Simulated assay, not measured.
Amino acid sequence: MPYEWTSPPQSTPQTMRLWAHNSLPPRGMAAFVLATFTLISIPVLPLLGSPLLWVLLPFTLAAVWALYAALQFNYRARQISEELFLGEAEARLTRFNPKGDVQEWVCNRYWVQATKYDRDGPIPHYVTLRGQGREVEIGSFLSEEERITLFDDLQRALKR
């Protein structure tokens, strides 16, 4: 599960950390790009010493570079995390965006409500926190099943 309570569920100040799931770690990405380069190079090997090699080589290198650039872009976009703090009197949601900016929402814990929009939100099972005149999303980068579980966990935590 790409979220966890970093404090015991029975304790009063509770903290939950959420992060985007990265199925391909940096080492796996390097191995994949190397394997792709190797496999793309196999048809080019018979052309060694031929002028046709210089015609095909830029295209093969461009394909490998485009694959690497797309994977890097995706990896950077997935560097998003959120932290929910539920104290005695306040609830605070902090979102750390991929570009480095930080967004924060603070509310009196008594007024916080977790809401799940099954079909009305931008994504299925859209989970939000509402309070102090604002409604903020939480865990939008999680999978559908994870958002359902997150909503249940939030309901339990907010009832205490």
Rank of each mutant, 00 (worst) to 15 (best):
L150V: 09
L154S: 00
E135W: 01
I42Q: 07
Y126S: 04
S23D: 11
P124S: 06
G131M: 00
F59R: 01
P51G: 13
C107M: 05
I138T: 04
F85Y: 13
G133V: 02
S143M: 14
V127K: 06
Q14A: 14
I123L: 10
Y3R: 03
D120S: 12
I148C: 06
H125Y: 14
Q132G: 08
P58Q: 05
I138M: 05
Q103L: 12
Y110H: 04
E145C: 02
L142F: 07
F141V: 08
G133H: 04
R134Y: 04
G121D: 08
T149Q: 08
I42W: 14
L52K: 11
V64P: 03
D120M: 13
T6N: 06
Y126E: 12
K99F: 11
W54Y: 14
S23C: 01
Y117I: 02
W105G: 00
T115E: 14
Y117W: 13
P122T: 06
I138G: 02
T60M: 09
W19T: 11
R92F: 02
P58T: 06
F96G: 07
E104V: 11
E146V: 02
G131F: 01
I80R: 07
R130Y: 05
R156N: 07
F59H: 03
P98M: 09
L57K: 04
L47S: 15
N22K: 14
A31P: 10
